[in-house]
Simulated assay, not measured.
Amino acid sequence: MPSKKPVEISQLFGQAGQSQQIHQLKSQIEKLEAEITQLRVNAFSSEEKAALEQQIEQLTNQLATQGGVHEIAISLIDPDPAQPRQTFPPLIIQERAESLRRQGQQNPIVLIPQLDGRYKLFDGELRWRAAPLAEMTKLKAVFLPKEEIPDEAVVFEGQLVTSIHSQKLHDLDLATALIRLIIFKYPNFIGREDEIPKFLNAFINRLVRSQKIQDLALIKDADLITQQEWLETSDFKEQEEYEIVSVLLGLQLNPVSINNNIFPLLKVAEDLKVIIRSEGLESSKIRELNKLSAEQLKIDESQATAIRTQITQRVVQEKLSLSQTKTLVKQTLEQYNASNNKAKHEKQIDKTIKDIESINLKSLEPTRLSKLHQVLQKTLHEIETLM
Rank of each mutant, 00 (worst) to 15 (best):
S3I: 00
K5P: 03
E8Q: 09
I9Y: 04
L12R: 10
A16E: 04
Q20P: 10
K31A: 03
L32C: 03
E35F: 07
F44H: 05
S45F: 08
S45M: 09
E48G: 07
Q55L: 04
E57L: 02
T60V: 02
T60Y: 00
Q62P: 00
G67T: 13
G68I: 01
S75E: 10
P84L: 01
L91P: 03
L91D: 12
Q94E: 08
A97Q: 03
R101M: 11
Q103S: 14
G104N: 12
N107R: 09
L111E: 02
L115I: 10
R118M: 12
Y119M: 10
F122P: 00
G124Y: 05
R129G: 10
L133H: 07
A134R: 10
A134F: 02
M136C: 01
A141Y: 08
V142I: 01
P145Y: 10
E147F: 15
A153P: 11
V154Y: 11
V154H: 11
L160M: 09
V161L: 13
Q167M: 08
L181V: 03
L181F: 04
F184Q: 12
P187M: 05
N188Q: 11
E193H: 02
E195I: 06
I204W: 05
N205Q: 08
R206I: 00
I213A: 06
I219H: 00
K220S: 05
A222V: 00
D223A: 01
Q227R: 04
E232F: 07
S234A: 05
D235R: 01
K237F: 00
E238H: 01
E241T: 09
E243A: 02
S246V: 01
V247K: 06
L249P: 05
G250K: 04
L253P: 06
S257F: 14
N260C: 01
P264A: 02
P264S: 10
L265E: 03
L266H: 03
K267V: 05
E270R: 12
L272P: 15
K273T: 06
I286V: 15
R287Q: 12
L289P: 04
K291Y: 11
S293M: 11
D300L: 09
E301G: 14
T305F: 03
T305E: 12
I307A: 08
R308L: 06
R308N: 13
T309Y: 13
Q317D: 13
L322S: 11
L322F: 15
T325M: 09
K326E: 15
K326Q: 15
V329N: 10
T332L: 06
K344Q: 13
I353A: 07
D355A: 09
L361D: 03
K362F: 11
K362V: 13
K362A: 14
L369G: 15
Q377F: 07
L380F: 14
H381W: 06
E382G: 08
T385H: 13
